[in-house]
């Protein structure tokens, strides 16, 4: 009898063997599983801590193809303590990876704004990589009030 864990590990093994799972499922249909896989790639097995990240997204919007996003990470941005990278993942988009920002120490303030596409109502995850190797994770939810979303 296969339980959920066995099935997941089977999928992971297949993916690791390079089998075209994505092709079987259809490339335009991504599941939160792909987002989790992508997040696992980013974190590399380190468990991210909560806090320090503020994501500003509209609570409700009818324009899924144009969602303003602001990510701010609390950090002194000094030699010993600064943010190295911020990754944005939208777990129900066809491509969960949205953007990655790589900051140098010359950035005085770890705050980035951009505009993203969201296909439907979902949670947007931001992961910040710190200079000491620790990771922080923040989440925000955005409701897309029309059906078309970013695909339309």
């Amino acid at each position: 009898m296969l339980n959920r864990r066995d099935i997941l590990s089977l999928f992971a093994a297949l993916a690791a063997a390079g089998l075209p799972l994505g092709g079987l499922m259809g490339s335009a249909r991504a599941a939160p599983r792909d987002a989790r896989k992508h997040l696992a790639e980013i974190t590399g097995g380190i468990k991210p801590k909560k806090g320090r990240i503020t994501i500003t997204l509209p609570k409700v919007t009818d324009q899924g193809d144009f969602v303003p996003l602001r990510v701010a990470v609390e950090s002194p941005m000094s030699e010993v303590d600064h943010v190295k990278a911020i990754h944005i993942v939208a777990e129900r988009n066809p491509t969960p990876a949205v953007a990655s920002f790589y900051l140098s120490r010359a950035i005085g303030k770890a705050e980035v704004s951009t505009r993203i596409r969201l296909v439907k109502t979902q949670v947007v995850v931001a992961v910040a990589e710190m200079s000491d190797g620790s990771l922080f994770l923040g989440k925000a939810r955005c409701k897309i009030s029309t059906g078309a979303g970013g695909c339309g």
Binding site: D65, F66, V67, M77, I88, A90, N93, P94, T95, P96, A97, V98, A99, S100, F101, Y102, L103, S104, A106, I107, G108, K109, E111, V112, S113, T114, R115, I116, R117, L118, G150
Partner: peptide, 20 residues
């Protein structure tokens, strides 16, 4: 500053960031 944008970025990509 460097950014890698995937398809989840809206058309007419816009970025704002800070530099000391």
């Amino acid at each position: 500053f460097r950014a890698e944008l995937d398809s989840g970025t809206a058309s007419d990509p816009y970025l704002s960031f800070h530099v000391r």
